[in-house]
Amino acid sequence: MGIAKPISLQDASWLQSLTGLFVKPARLQIAALCVRYGKAGPEILLVSSRGTGRWILPKGWPEKDMPAFKTAVVEAFEEAGVEGQADMRPLGSFRSFKGLNDGLRLRTNVLVFKIRVEKQHKTFPEIGQRKCVWVPWEKALDMLDEKPVRRFLLRHRDDLT
């Protein structure tokens, strides 16, 4: 019977390469924090998710050859028919999960861009697939299902004005 020889780090490189199969990096999504100003103060746009009907911010995958802030504008229009001016720099980010149709969930890092809404169209690409609602900041906190989005709004309340 032989004596067990310790495995060196070089010998274990095959094991380290397998970790990529189990831990996938977070995917990037782009969100639009759509803000309009009413008589009672700033209001935030929430849209319902298509699958579960949860209240979320409009968001989607980055568009090829398009700056991220413009992707936020596209997502806001497609999901809620809004148009406006987006800040070129993200307001911040949060971590989330994206549920896929097959039941899988992907970790995501979500960059959030503030959009000052100028107009909301009556028709838009995802009309009938989502509900849209304008709510004051405090009500948005109650309606949002995801804790990371609520924490994001708490951190950025002063950025809404």
Rank of each mutant, 00 (worst) to 15 (best):
L18Q: 14
T19W: 04
G20K: 09
G20I: 05
L21V: 05
F22K: 07
A26W: 14
R27F: 10
L28I: 10
A31N: 01
A32M: 02
L33Q: 00
C34H: 04
R36C: 06
Y37D: 15
K39S: 13
A40K: 08
E43K: 08
E43C: 02
L45Y: 02
L45E: 03
V47C: 02
S48Q: 03
S49A: 09
R50Y: 01
R50Q: 14
G51D: 05
T52G: 09
G53H: 04
G53F: 01
R54G: 11
R54K: 06
R54T: 07
K59H: 04
K59L: 06
K59I: 00
G60S: 08
G60H: 01
E63C: 03
K64F: 07
D65V: 06
D65I: 04
M66S: 01
P67W: 07
P67H: 05
P67V: 06
P67S: 08
K70L: 12
K70A: 07
V73P: 00
V73Q: 13
E75F: 02
A76L: 13
A76Q: 07
F77H: 12
E78L: 13
E79C: 11
G81R: 08
G84C: 12
G84T: 06
A86I: 03
A86K: 01
A86S: 09
D87A: 11
M88P: 00
R89H: 11
P90A: 02
P90H: 09
L91R: 05
L91N: 04
L91F: 13
S93A: 12
S93Q: 09
S96L: 10
S96K: 03
K98F: 02
G99A: 08
G99E: 09
G103M: 14
G103S: 06
L104W: 07
L104D: 15
R105L: 14
R105H: 13
L106D: 11
R107K: 14
N109F: 12
N109C: 06
N109T: 12
V110E: 03
L111F: 08
L111R: 02
L111S: 04
F113Q: 01
R116P: 12
V117A: 05
V117F: 10
V117S: 04
E118Y: 04
E118I: 02
K119E: 15
Q120N: 10
Q120D: 08
Q120T: 07
H121P: 12
H121C: 13
F124S: 08
F124M: 09
F124E: 07
P125M: 05
E126D: 15
I127G: 02
Q129R: 13
R130V: 14
R130P: 00
K131M: 15
K131Q: 14
C132D: 00
C132K: 14
C132E: 04
V133R: 12
W134H: 10
W137T: 10
W137I: 09
W137C: 11
W137D: 11
E138P: 00
E138G: 08
K139Q: 13
A140F: 08
A140Q: 11
D145T: 15
P148G: 09
V149A: 12
R150K: 15
R150N: 02
R151C: 10
R151E: 15
F152E: 03
F152W: 11
L154S: 09
L154P: 00
H156C: 08
H156E: 07
R157H: 14
